[in-house]
Amino acid sequence: MSADLSGALFWKEQNLLVVSDLHLEKGSSFAARGVLLPPYDTVATLSRLASVVARLDPKIVIALGDSFHDRSAHERLSSPDREAIVALQARRDWIWISGNHDPALPSDLGGTVASEVAIGEIVFRHEPTGAAGEIAGHLHPKARVATRARWLERRCFASDGERAVMPAFGAYTGGLSIRDEAFAKIFRKPGFMAHVLGDNRLHTIAASRCY
């Protein structure tokens, strides 16, 4: 299983692609509360996802929860964005894992809705529990690294080899520091790693050395 620079996870043997926390329609969700963010986040997120899918051509795609920013977000999808999702789903199995932001996904979105998926020893679910063999999202890990020139803050995968938390894929998704207690609870032992998304490659840095 390999972490992709885009923030997706690719399991070659299973031809399986996982993306987490797309938070589609986060812009319009804020707009409804009076913060008029640019309404282009969904198209930005979907076009990034489309390029990953085109590059790796997976047989199965798992959207690991919080694919939509709120319960009614899917109703606000524009027709072109809706069509883009349909196009992504063509010729492959598509699984929407439900998350805390989108606990009840409708069936007209295409694909299958599930609360979790197990393939062999591996379990895919939205909120991490700390179980071995678990791939989760929810926390939006990011790492700040002190380099000799400046601080660099990037999204990252968090993993100890037994379990992993994926970075958020959405265009407007912020991050939670990998040093937050939430990660300590999942990994328990301090020796977990941040796989930091650089510009052109991933960098593996001990979480204890990030901020």
Binding site: V145, T147, G198, R201, T204, I205
Partner: peptide, 19 residues
Amino acid sequence: EAVYGEASDELLAEAAEEL
């Protein structure tokens, strides 16, 4: 002022190696 360019990867790689 920091420069945000290709050196970012190099810096991250360096930080990783140093650690």
